[in-house]
Each structure stands twice: as C-alpha cells, then as structure tokens.
Design a protein around this nucleic acid. Structure first.
Lengths: 209, 209
DNA sequence: ACCTGAACACCGTTCAAGT
DNA sequence: ACCTGAACACCGTTCAAGT
C-alpha cells in the first residue's frame, strides 16, 4: 500500500490484545484533538497522554517519539486522500479529457477543503517530519492512478504522458496548497479553482499528439 | 515596504550603538547557520547564542522569543525574492506576453534554486510562525509588480487581469514549492519548469479578451 | 546602553516497579 | 502483555547584577 517508511518512525509494536488497540486509537485521536485545539507548539506528550487517558510511558510503548505521532496522523490522512483520487480515476476511465480534469481538480480540492482545520494542521505538522517517504508513497499512488486515467481518455493521446501527468499533479497539488496557505476570501478561492481547471485543460490541449 | 507585522514578533529594540548592530547581525547570521547545519529541531536558543558569541540574555534583548529569530530570517528572505521579481517586472514593461511569462517563471525559480538548502530550511522554519502577515506582504508586492507588467503587454489585454494574475502567481509559486518538496531528479525538475511555462502561456492565450 | 548567566518552569524520554 | 509515574537531561525565558 505504502512504501516502507523509515523504521524509527513506525509504531513500536502492533497491539496484540483488544485493549491495546483501543489505547492506540485513543492516542491518535487525542493527538489530532490536541493539535486542533492547542496548535502544534502546544502539542505535548503529557497533554496527548492526558487527553488519551493513559500515562506517558504507555504512549512510548506505541510510538518511539513525539514525531511518530504526527507521522502516523499524516500517513492516515494521505492514505484517505490517495484513496479518493484513485476511486475518482477509476470511475473516469474512458471519459473525455475535460471530464477528467474537472473531476481531478474537484476531487482533490474537495478532499482538502472538507476539513480545512485538519488540512492546515497537517500541512504544518509535517514540517518537522522525515516525511519524504510519506510524500513519495502518496505521489506514486496518485501518479499511477492519474496516468492510467489519462491514458484511457477517449478524445486524446499524449506523446509524453509521464511528463504531462507529473506536471499536472505538481501544478494542481501546488496551487491548492498555495491557495490554502494564503487564506484567501472564499469567492476568490473558487474563482482560482475554476481558472486552474481551465489552465489544465488548455495545457492538455497543447500537449496532445 | 512590508505590512506591519504582529508586534510580538518584531525585534525588541532597534540598536542605538554600533556594537549593538553588530550583535544583532551576528545573532541572525548564527541563526541561519545553526538552522542549516543542525536543522530546525536542533535550533536552540543556547546554540544560537553560543554561535553568535553572546549570552542568551543578550539574544532576548533583541528578540522577544525564538520564533522572532525565524520570523526575521523569513522577512529578510522574502524581501530579497520580492525585490528580484519587482526588478524583473520593471525590465519587462511593454514586452510580449511570452517573454514576460518566461522571465517570471525563470526569475522565481532561479531565486528559489540559487540556495536550495536555504530555501528548504526557510520553507520549513515558517511553519511554527504566525507568518500570514509576512506572506501577505510578499504577495501584495509581487501582485502589484506582475499586474503592472502584464497590463503593459504589447500583444494582449485581459478582461479580468486581477484574477488572471492571481491565478498565475498561485500556480507558479505553488508548483515551485511542490517540486521543491519532492526532491525530484534534476532533469525532471527542469522539464516540469518548461511545461509550467508552456501551461501559463496557453492559459494567457485563452484569457485574452 | 548593553551584556551576563544562574534560576525556574516545562518538555521529551526512560526505566524500575507494578498488574 | 500492558501500564504507571518519578527521574533525568535539556530547553525557552527571565531578571538581578554587572560594565
């Protein structure tokens, strides 16, 4: 599913008893809650443990250090987003290019906008992380899904599909993040999303063989 | 030059004597050095003070807290990048749209690529910051410069220049950051830059009135 | 006007002791 | 097999004392 992550960031052990699973979920749930309510710089092992209803020691049985908490959170989140993109791509096999671009931008934008607070918090939390493996795994899944989709387009074929696809993804993902970080008025945000779609479309038009 | 930043992030006082100016510069220089050599999570007030050759107490006379160090660094950096974009835009007044797009992408890309380590470190350091004011000031300067430039194009006029311009900036800045974060092979990076230029160009073609 | 560094509150992480 | 929490090293920040 995902590329093997750096060992030191993985949970220390997998739960073998029911209560351990409960504990692990409680810790992750507490992490996102503290992150949202207190912010990254007030995300403390003590606070997370307290909120999860366990001792710090217990936390360290499951996660080798604080960063591993954020790593797990990002992993879960990126897995969900990648899944949504994959589903959308499968549904669109054989469709027309405009439909594909429209749906790709809409799906990704929607996935990020659904819970703005979570998206923002995770964008920020990812900074202290050795997150290249995470991003890479995500990129590869999405890349495979969209390449297959555009390759099946009913109205166009591309000379260098790999490059065209990589460009599209960099532009879409990058633009969404940029817009997100600037906290623009809702109206302008929507307008930019529409323009982005137009832009991708005319690019694909140009790139057709 | 820049919008007024949150007060709590500004240096505590401006130096009034020569040695104080030296001290302030030494602290900022030490900050970037420690950031580059040790990484964000090992950037410690003690370490910065030591490297700068002053005591922690002195550091706190100039900066109210650790974040203010990173804030100052980002401020200086964004000021330089904005300046480069402004200069390029002025030089291109009255040129053709293709020249403008090419130069805009090249200038920004170059500014970010020149010192990849610094760019990366600052992207990351900005996360814990209340950096909206900083980003906003940067965005406004650049927006004004590029709007004026595209408004002066010899070969095209645009119906909604403000929106077209905002879209272009979001796409270019966003894509550059995305590419940067993924650490792609140099060849692919260059290819994406070229594709990005093509994409912006055909978008402007479509957006002409 | 500027600098020092010991002192304080808090944080990440460990580990001997428990159930 | 899982959990506890006191203990340790370190970090951000302050402030009384110095030049």
């Amino acid at each position: 599913m995902t590329a093997t992550p750096p060992l030191h960031l993985k949970p220390r052990k997998r739960p073998r008893q029911a209560r351990a699973t409960v504990t692990l979920d409680a810790i992750l749930e507490a992490t996102i809650q503290v992150l949202l309510s207190e912010g990254l710089h007030r995300l403390t092992t003590t606070r997370v443990a307290e909120r999860a209803g366990v001792s710090v020691g217990t936390m360290y049985q499951y996660f080798p250090h604080k960063q591993a908490l954020l790593y797990a959170l990002n992993e879960r989140y990126l897995d969900i987003v990648a899944g949504k993109v994959e589903t959308a791509c499968l549904e669109l096999r054989g469709a027309s290019t405009p439909e594909m671009v429209e749906a790709l931008v809409a799906t990704y934008w929607q996935a990020k906008t659904e819970r703005r607070d979570v998206t923002r918090a995770l964008y920020r939390s990812a900074v202290e992380l050795d997150n290249e493996a995470l991003i890479e795994a995500f990129a590869q899944r999405v890349d495979a899904a969209t390449t297959a989709m555009f390759g099946s387009a009913s109205d166009a074929t591309y000379d260098d599909l790999a490059l065209v696809n990589a460009t599209l993804l960099a532009v879409i993902f990058g633009t969404v993040r940029n817009v997100f970080e600037r906290n623009l008025p809702a109206g302008l945000e929507t307008d930019i999303r529409k323009q982005l779609t137009i832009m991708c479309l005319c690019y694909l038009e140009t790139a057709r063989v």
